[in-house]
């Protein structure tokens, strides 16, 4: 599996489903569970992660040859933390409501395993362009997953989507979906579903 020989297009799309960071690699679960109770929160968190992932991969891709191997992890974390703080301040300044809703979880992107893991597993060993494509792909995969969670949980838990009620008064929201247990159960089902599909397609190949 020589990663360098793969087509750039593949680096981009692999993160969407096949190597989805959350559903397949089980990275960054913490934030997916925490802020996916509404669609708006999901999108904001997803975009923030994509932003941080993109710029971290860009900067680390540029300077990786200058960093001695022994201190690479602290160096990566500083770069990531910088962009996370930038994103945090930006949201506070321009989108105070979203910043309030996401609360403590924006700063925690810094320890979101997706970002550090991609630097370790990919950016470190690859050229700049594939690294950036990988970052965009993984970020998008993260957005897809968290958005899916947000849609499911908001519809079932609030009976609304984007804050707009979509059912009549007959619908009693399933409160637990927006509470922590609902987050665990929804993600478990999504990962299970993903496993199911992967297994089926592998069986077909055989």
């Amino acid at each position: 599996m020589a990663q360098n020989s793969r087509k750039p297009g593949y680096e981009l799309v692999k993160g969407f489903f096949k190597e989805n960071p959350v559903l397949v690699q089980l990275l960054g679960i913490c934030s997916v569970l925490a802020v996916s109770n509404t669609v708006v929160n999901s999108i904001s968190m997803g975009v923030s992660v994509l932003f941080v992932l993109f710029f971290s991969s860009l900067v680390i891709g540029l300077i990786k040859d200058l960093i001695p191997n022994e201190v690479r992890i602290p160096a990566y974390i500083v770069v990531i933390a910088t962009f996370v703080t930038v994103a945090d301040l930006f949201l506070k300044a321009k989108f105070p409501d979203i910043s309030k809703a996401l609360g403590a979880y924006i700063p925690l992107i810094v320890v979101n395993c997706i970002i550090l893991a991609r630097q370790e597993a990919f950016t470190k060993k690859n050229k700049l362009l594939p690294s950036i494509l990988d970052a965009i792909g993984m970020g998008t995969g993260y957005i897809i997953t968290i958005l899916l969670m947000g849609i499911i949980r908001e519809i079932l838990g609030f009976g609304s989507i984007f804050g707009v009620k979509i059912f009549g008064s007959w619908f009693k929201p399933i409160l637990v979906m927006i509470l922590p247990p609902g987050a665990f159960l929804t993600l478990a089902m999504l990962i299970g579903f993903m496993n199911f599909i992967t297994r089926k397609s592998e069986e077909k190949k055989l």
Binding site: P180, P181, A188, N195
Partner: peptide
């Protein structure tokens, strides 16, 4: 992972 998450839930 899924069953662990279900237990956690």
């Amino acid at each position: 992972a899924p069953i662990t998450l279900i237990i956690a839930g």
